[in-house]
């Protein structure tokens, strides 16, 4: 193990500690602040430790039913978007790839808008968004099989085209939606927000997220090999086509589950993996865990800002764009992708 490896491991350990610290601090900010001592008491008693209650029932409800699922979801959504972005950048050998490159977000938006239009409850909005997102990417895959020439390029082009098709569908739904109640709801959903996150949302998306993220972690070494190009990867003992399909499926699964609970949250999947490249380099052995942790920390912090900045809460998608767009400019100015030894 080289000195660089040791340094990168230390950075990842540090990020784990920062993540845990941020989770604890996140409880204490908000309209019903839960002090750290009470919080630890509530958590311990929920885990079955016999502790006499020194907090109010209201405080426990705020911490357990409102704040905890929201915090956990913000971490998970951030981790998912960021790891999917890192994975797509690797399989497409393109530093500008982001989680919605294959239409996952456009599909989810359409599904959610449809569910809101026909008046379904919030659980079904999540389910619809998730299903539509997966369907869109499946459609992109099917279409790209008929594309002539470069398979990867065909996939990306099909993604752009079908995304735009579904975006038009969403626009049409907005056009016919009742401007009194449904249109604002659709618009708000599309802006991306974790307000109203519940344990039910968490239960729906946790499994698909894990089914995606765990293989991405396990395959992260081979992702390095894949970035060398198909021929070299094959000669190094990796079945490039099959691995690419596998990783795209996993990345799509996590993107779809993230978008279905949070709406469209842009930039995280592009910005965080690049920020992490600056810190731990391009080796996916470290880049993947760093992206997962970094995405989680970032979105949780931004969500804390989002729910505290104003009483109604600013949609988190707007805030991530405020951070992401300037970073993107810095990236294209040529300073973003340098990793020197």
């Amino acid at each position: 193990m080289t000195a660089a490896d040791k340094k990168h491991r230390a950075i990842i350990l540090l990020m784990v500690l920062v993540l845990i610290g941020c989770i604890l601090v996140s409880f204490t900010v908000g309209r019903y602040p839960v002090p750290l001592k009470e919080l630890l008491g509530i958590l311990a008693s929920r885990m079955g430790l016999p502790i006499e209650k020194f907090w109010t029932a209201q405080m426990e409800a705020a911490a357990w039913n409102v704040r905890l699922p929201r915090i956990l979801l913000s971490v998970l959504v951030g981790a998912c978007l960021s790891s999917a972005g890192a994975a797509y950048q690797g399989v497409f050998q393109n530093p500008m790839a982001s989680p919605d490159i294959l239409g996952a977000s456009a599909g989810a938006g359409f599904g959610a808008a449809l569910a809101i239009l026909i008046g379904l409850s919030s659980v079904y909005i999540t389910v619809f968004a998730f299903a539509a997102s997966l369907l869109t990417v499946a459609l992109v895959f099917t279409v790209s099989r008929h594309a002539k020439g470069d398979r990867v390029l065909g996939l990306i082009l099909a993604g752009i085209m079908i995304s735009s098709l579904f975006q038009s569908g969403t626009s049409f739904i907005k056009l016919v939606a009742d401007p009194g109640n449904k249109l604002p709801q659709i618009t708000y959903w599309l802006m991306g927000s974790l307000a109203g996150a519940s344990w039910r949302d968490f239960d729906i998306v946790l499994l698909p997220m894990l089914f995606g993220i765990v293989p991405l972690m396990l395959l992260r070494w081979k992702l390095n090999v894949l970035t060398m190009g198909d021929d070299e990867a094959r000669a190094l003992g990796v079945n490039a086509q099959r691995l690419r399909v596998g990783i795209v499926i996993c990345a799509t699964l996590v993107t779809a589950s993230a978008v279905s609970v949070s709406g469209m949250i842009g930039w995280v999947g592009l910005v965080i993996p690049h920020m992490m490249r600056r810190i731990v380099g391009s080796d996916y052995r470290y880049l993947m865990p760093a992206s997962i942790l970094g995405g989680g920390i970032f979105l949780m912090v931004v969500d804390n800002i989002s729910r505290n900045v104003s009483s109604s809460g600013i949609p988190i998608g707007i805030l991530t764009a405020f951070v992401g767009a300037p970073f993107f400019l810095w990236l294209i100015s040529g300073k973003g992708d340098h990793y020197e030894h």
Partner: peptide, 23 residues
């Protein structure tokens, strides 16, 4: 296989690249 030229899309250190041989 040693290709004519290898130009990875991302920055890797030499030891990362050589280590890929163990895949």
């Amino acid at each position: 296989y040693i290709p004519q030229s290898s130009n990875p899309s991302f920055n890797y250190s030499v030891s990362d690249i050589v280590l890929m041989g163990s895949t």
